[in-house]
Nucleic acid binder design. Structure first.
Lengths: 213, 213, 213, 213
DNA sequence: ACATAATCGAGACGGTACGTCCCGTCTTGTG
DNA sequence: CACAAGACGGGACGTACCGTCTCGATTATGT
């Protein structure tokens, strides 16, 4: 998962010729400690408030050990964010009943947005999307898009089953569902969306996209 | 819209004694030169490639003259960008036809959010909201709230005239209208909402909040 | 006494044509306050730790008021030190008995060197004689030399009366008398010369410079 | 003779474990380049015209590299000057004839004090003795005290052999011998003591402290 | 067993920019 | 005019990180 292209142990599968490189191998615990320290500091002060010196110190690692793995602050941040996608599975069930599934999905987003790590890192990323566009782009690919694919899948099935209109822009519908939740979290920090309001939004959208009888 | 505590003109009403502060007054040409240099450098190298030292030098100004007005690089950038938005006027007409007015209002937000300067200033404010809550609060009061008051007024009139349901949370409805536009601007910078999609959103929401027959 | 050559009121005596310059006359209290503040700060931190800004502030005066009288920090310091000469008269009597007079004079220097203002300003001046040679030179002329002229006068009279050898370098003899007192004060701050040691030194020197029988 | 708390070579005696400090060691060439640049600039513009920024630039060194070794401009200058004095050896012989030895010793002090570097470092130390007492204390221990021990030894031997009075305060006698030389150096920079005057002083003092027949 | 070689923590290195403090000058309104 | 207040261009201060570079010590392999 490193951007520098250095092969991590175990990543290559059953290579025909192992030919392990000589010398002391890299210590996997370093990778872990560095990533963790980076995520901690991102949540605390964003990319701007993140210094390689502090990451090294917090991870109990020399600066060179970081630069041996990542060529710059940006690539480190990008990789650190990438690790977030795996651990944060979309915990929305798949009941087959569209309304319930949508509600569950939006509510999952609502809960996630209040989770500390998610809730703090997103605004930081947004603020710095001009300064560090690659980081934001990777954050989208690795963290956000996987979640969205779930709801787009739901909507597409609804279209196929005839429950929804056939001319939907599923991408945009997902934005309408997610918009209010995200807007409140970001812009109006103190006024979170309630579970009841999640239902309101889903019903409102559903009414607009359901196939007309 | 300075973020520093400068007294705002016209805020005091009929003050008995104006009581100008003593000493040499600030030179307005400096403000102008600094803002201009900042904008120039922003255009050339982005926020990352902007140094106070270079701004001072390009503006033909001492660094202290900048710090006398803005306490940090962030506040300077925010103010510089703010000057670009020019007239903060909500350029939405008031026709009396609710659907048309809502469409006009959301579309005005869409156009504004698509402006480079607007598109950059909001995320920056969001990033600072933990570190400098007062800056975000000021931004909300001066920029965002006046716009929202317009739409809340529309919705309230719709409730009074019987066109809309009477149990609406106008604040939340405004968020649903604004959510998709802002969400796309912030999170999906490359995919702006189209005028057609504005109409879709308004119709969708309107259908959900209209008084049932 | 100003180095800028501006005529102070009352300094010119009975000028044929008074022809007072128009406008508001300078406030003599300002001169005083500035000089006093300068001396205070010199005693506290030397020339290095003296800022015009602080002098102005402590004197309750605008910076321009200082620069109207003195063209630079150096000229101000020089003039401030010059005022010291007047107030610190040599309080040694003139009994006619050489030994007593010398003891009284050296002891006066011993007491002076422990006085706060004298004792603190001299080492400061010495330390900065390379940085500000003019200041040191003026300090010598105005403050130190007048004291020394007293002892040189005594020694010359002793030579004339036949009590002392006729080939004395009075200047150097004064240095021998003053050397130990000053050396202890400056270099060995904690070990001041005692009144008894003053007598020892004078007797020692006197024995060496008395006319051989 | 660094003023910073660097461990002195040879101070530890027979340490069981030398325990080199970890990390990249300081580059000795930097020390050299910085000192040299400092001395060059001192020669050109004096202490006043010496800026750390210029020293760094001329030495081809980062500012931090200087501040890692010296905590301020003052300490750097002091150390730079100290390196000039080269051998701190007291170049006075030990002939066994008291008068000759004293003359040689005082004359050695005279020659030293007349050196530019020596002449500048002492007054500077004096100025700092209030602010940085430990620096002055170190200077005393390393530079001044070793010299004085030589003369005190001479005087004590003179007392033991019966050549001198037995009630002498050798410390004070040393001050009387050194006083005139130092006084002229510090206060009357332009008028150095001549070799002949050294003889005068020694004879004068010797006459006062010799055992009466 | 032992040299080889890449790793590790630590921290010095040349730089760049930071935000602060003064310098000596200039510009206000009020005596 | 002088005065207090304080803004102005400029320059140096001492600090914080950047990304690179040595150090001595550690840790596997390939002889």
């Amino acid at each position: 998962m490193t951007t520098t292209g250095a092969t991590l142990p175990g990543a290559a599968g059953a290579a025909p010729i192992p030919h392990r490189s000589p010398g002391r191998p890299r210590d996997a615990r370093c990778d872990q400690a560095i990533i963790q320290a980076t995520l901690d500091m991102l949540a605390e002060g964003g990319i701007a408030g993140l210094s390689m010196e502090a990451v090294a110190s917090r991870a109990g690692v020399g600066k060179a050990t970081i630069y041996r793995r990542w060529s710059s602050k940006e690539t480190l941040v990008v990789d650190a964010l990438a690790t977030l996608s795996g651990s944060d599975e979309v915990d929305a069930p798949d009941t087959g009943v569209l309304r319930d599934d949508l509600i569950a999905w939006v509510d999952s987003a609502r809960r996630k947005s209040w989770n500390t790590q998610w809730g703090r890192i997103l605004p930081r990323m947004l603020a710095e999307k001009d300064t560090h566009p690659e980081a934001m782009s990777l954050y989208w690919q690795r963290v956000i898009r996987p979640r969205r694919e779930r709801v787009e899948e739901m909507l597409r099935r609804g279209m196929e089953s005839g429950e929804l209109r056939e001319d939907l822009d599923v991408d945009f519908v997902a934005d309408i569902l997610l918009g209010p939740v995200t807007y409140r979290q970001l812009v109006r920090h103190a006024r979170a969306v309630s579970p009841e309001q999640v239902v309101q939004v889903v019903d409102l959208v559903l009414e607009g996209i359901r196939r007309r009888p």
